[in-house]
Amino acid sequence: MSINKKYIKYFPIITSFVFIILILILYFINDSFKNNINELWEVFSSGNKEEITNHIKSYGIWGAIILILIMIFQLFLVVFPSWLPMIIAALVYGFIPSVIISLIGVFLASTLAYVIGNTISENTLKKYISKKSFDKLDFWINNYGFFSVIIFRVSPFLSNDGVSLIAGALSMNYLKFILATIIGITPLAVAIAFFSSNINELKEGLSYISGIGILIYTIFIYFDYKKRKNN
């Protein structure tokens, strides 16, 4: 018996929303769970690095799962910088484990955002943006999508979720998309893990990484676009 392809396509979104509904139900029927969530929310929304670190440490290995879930839910609840859980992971679990946690979290969050974007479809997207804007996005994704995703991932100051949604909506090849995501997020995760103990050095390091990446990308786009235009 074959499974309808439509249901396969929507399966990640369905399971995600079912999971969210279950969390909400548990939140309202279990006082202990509710208190833990409220405490976690207050700690993270405070932005206090030391307080957040100590709180995550108290969960032991479960803290890693909490950080991964926060990276995923950050797609829906933008209340703190996307790189904050990556810093906390480095401070709590060390260099290598934090890089792995960051990669898993970004992989899952990016996949979910891509699938959500993919369900939007091109026809729906055309209803909200002009044909000219759509054609530009379509051209960009088809010709520079791979490198665009890398740059958006390597820079913590650009919209990671936005590029994932657009890549899905314009049906960019998923394997190409997720490979670009991993390539882009790896140096960022490594830099965050390396400089996490010094927030000033971290900000400076991230700025350099973002600046160099965008510069190289701009030069590449300029010469490639010029070549295409001449042809």
Score class of each variant (00 low, 15 high):
Trp41Asp: 11
Asn48Tyr: 10
Asp31Ala: 13
Trp41Thr: 05
Glu50Thr: 09
Tyr27Met: 03
Lys34Gly: 05
Ile14Ala: 02
Ile20Leu: 13
Ile20Cys: 07
Gly47Pro: 08
Leu24Ile: 13
Trp41Phe: 12
Ser46Ile: 12
Phe28Gly: 00
Phe11Asn: 14
Lys49Phe: 07
Leu40Gln: 10
Leu26Ala: 05
Ser16Tyr: 03
Thr53Asp: 02
Asp31His: 11
Thr53Leu: 04
Ile23Ser: 02
Phe17Lys: 06
Thr15Ala: 14
Asn38Trp: 01
Phe33Asn: 05
Val18Gln: 05
Tyr27Ser: 05
Ile21Val: 15
Asn30Val: 05
Leu24His: 11
Lys34Glu: 12
Ile25Asp: 01
Ile20His: 06
Asn38Thr: 02
Leu24Phe: 13
Asn54Thr: 00
Phe11Met: 15
Ser16Cys: 03
Phe28Lys: 01
Asn30Asp: 15
Asn38Lys: 13
Glu50Tyr: 04
Glu51Gln: 14
Asp31Phe: 11
Phe33Glu: 10
Glu39Asp: 13
Asn35Ile: 05
Ile14Tyr: 04
Asp31Arg: 09
Asn36Pro: 01
Asn36Cys: 09
Ile14Phe: 01
Pro12Ile: 13
Phe28Pro: 06
Phe11Pro: 05
Ser16Asp: 00
Ser45Thr: 12
Asn35Gly: 02
Ser16Arg: 08
Thr15Asp: 12
Trp41Glu: 08
Phe19Ser: 15
Thr15Met: 14
Trp41Lys: 10
Ser16Lys: 02
Ile13Asp: 07
Ile23Cys: 11
Phe44Asn: 00
Asn48Ser: 15
Asn38Ile: 04
Leu22Ile: 04
Ile23Pro: 00
Asn36Asp: 12
Lys49Met: 13
Glu39Met: 07
Ile13Asn: 08
Val18Lys: 00
Glu51Leu: 14
Leu24Cys: 11
Glu51Arg: 11
Leu40Met: 14
Ser46Val: 11
Thr15Tyr: 11
Lys49Trp: 08
Glu50Asn: 11
Ile13Tyr: 06
Ser46Cys: 14
Ile13Pro: 01
Asn38Gln: 14
Asn30Glu: 12
Asn30Ser: 10
Thr53Gly: 04
Asn48Gly: 12
Ile52Asn: 07
Val43Asp: 09
Tyr27His: 07
Thr15His: 00
Ile23Arg: 03
Ile37Tyr: 06
Ile29Gln: 11
Glu42Pro: 02
Ile37Arg: 03
Ile25Val: 12
Ile13Leu: 14
Gly47Asp: 07
Ile14Thr: 00
Phe44Pro: 02
Lys34Leu: 03
Ile20Tyr: 07
Asn36Trp: 03
Phe44Ala: 01
Ile29Asn: 01
Thr15Gln: 10
Ile52Ala: 14
Asn54Asp: 05
Asn38Ala: 04
Glu39Cys: 09
Val18Asn: 10
Thr15Gly: 09
Phe17Glu: 06
Ser32Pro: 00
Phe44Val: 05
Ile14Leu: 09
Leu24Asn: 13
Ile21Thr: 11
Ile25Gln: 08
Ser32Gln: 03
Glu51Ser: 10
Ile52Asp: 02
Ile13Gly: 04
Trp41Tyr: 09
Ser45Arg: 10
Glu42Lys: 01
Phe17Tyr: 09
Ile52Arg: 07
Leu40Phe: 15
Ser46His: 12
Ile52Glu: 08
Phe44Met: 03
Glu51Phe: 06
Asn35Leu: 10
Phe33Val: 12
Ile23Thr: 06
Glu39Gly: 11
Leu40Ser: 15
Ile23Glu: 04
Lys49Tyr: 11
Phe28Leu: 01
Trp41Leu: 10
Phe11Ile: 15
Asn35Gln: 10
